[in-house]
Structure formats: C-alpha cells, structure tokens
C-alpha cells in the first residue's frame, strides 16, 4: 500500500476560502461535519438515497456523502449554514420541517428549485424534490412552502 499522500486542499465554502491538509479521500460530508465545524449538513443514510446531506456544488444540489473532498478542490460548496433566515419564511410557515433531520437537505434542494423556476417547465416540484426523503411531513408542508416561495419570487419586483 502506498503511503497516504497529504496535500493542501482548497475550496470555497459558504463564500470563504478554505484550506486544509488531507489525502482528499474523506467524504465531503465528514469534513464539513467533523473537521470544519458545520454540523448543519446531516447524514441520513450514507448511500445517496435520502438527501439529508445535500449541499450545493457550484450551485447545484449534490449528496455530500458521495463526494470525496478532493473532488471539490477549487470549487464552490454551499451548505445550509449559508442560507439566510429570510429565505426560509415560507418553509417555516407551511410546516416544511417537523423532526428536522431531513430539513437541511430539503432546504438546499428547495432553495435550488425556488431559485431556478425554469426547471418547472420540464419537471414538477415533487419530481425535483424526490431525492430528499422525509418521514414526518408527508411532503405537503415542503411542497406548499416551495410553491409559496415561488409565488413570492414571481410577485416581488
């Protein structure tokens, strides 16, 4: 076995340049949670099925349990910690969160949908949210919150 090679890994995390030393073979999820002090991103399954670990990579939702941190060097990662409370009003009101364990992932995909309404020309909100399993809400609270946020975006100047 070759000796693990440590190197400098740098990427943009929630708008800030991050640098740390590692082999690059840790999961992005673990690095965020256990090395960089951002436990908002949750692990629900570790198999890319539940979406609780969703973050944005260059603006697109991805499962951070299926990415090695070396793969995000020089790229932009945004986590739930980057979302402003004002962007969550509709989801809060509609009952989009109950136990909260799936919620950070839901929020990251929901914000992506809300910020890219053009996606709805080819897919429904329910299809776009299918990568985020929720066991509490039955999804209605989530879907309604997104719909309301989309209405707000549409009517706001």
């Amino acid at each position: 076995m070759t000796k693990p090679e440590h190197r400098d890994i740098g990427f943009t995390l929630n708008g800030e340049e991050i640098r740390f030393s590692g082999t690059g073979t840790e999961r992005l999820l673990d690095v965020l949670r256990y090395r960089l002090g951002l436990p908002g991103t949750k692990e629900g399954c570790g198999e890319g099925e539940c979406g609780a670990c969703t973050v944005h990579l260059d603006g697109v939702p991805v499962n951070s349990c299926l990415i090695l941190v070396g793969q995000v060097r020089n790229r932009r990662v945004d986590t739930v910690e980057s979302v402003a409370p004002e962007a969550l009003v509709e989801l809060h009101t509609s009952g989009a969160t109950q136990c909260g364990a799936c919620t950070p992932g839901v929020v990251m995909t929901a914000r992506f949908v809300i910020d890219h309404p053009g996606l709805l020309e080819r897919a429904s909100v329910r299809q776009l949210m299918a990568g985020n399993l929720c066991r509490c809400t039955g999804y209605d609270g989530i879907i309604e919150g997104i719909a309301e946020a989309l209405r707000q975006e549409e009517t706001s100047p």
């Binding site: 570790g46 890319g48 349990c65 090695l68 070396g70």
Partner: peptide, 23 residues
C-alpha cells in the same frame, strides 16, 4: 467521476480505502 456508485457506503468499504483514486 461522479462517485454515485463507487462511494456508496464509503466508510464501510474497507477494501477500497487502501486504493488510489484517479479523480
């Protein structure tokens, strides 16, 4: 590449941890 197959259950894939990955 995307890792959506190779990285499933990564912490438990002991046999893969010793390998070299070409990103």
């Amino acid at each position: 590449a995307g890792g959506t197959d190779l990285l499933v259950h990564w912490p438990q894939r002991f046999e893969d941890h010793g390998r070299t990955f070409l990103d």
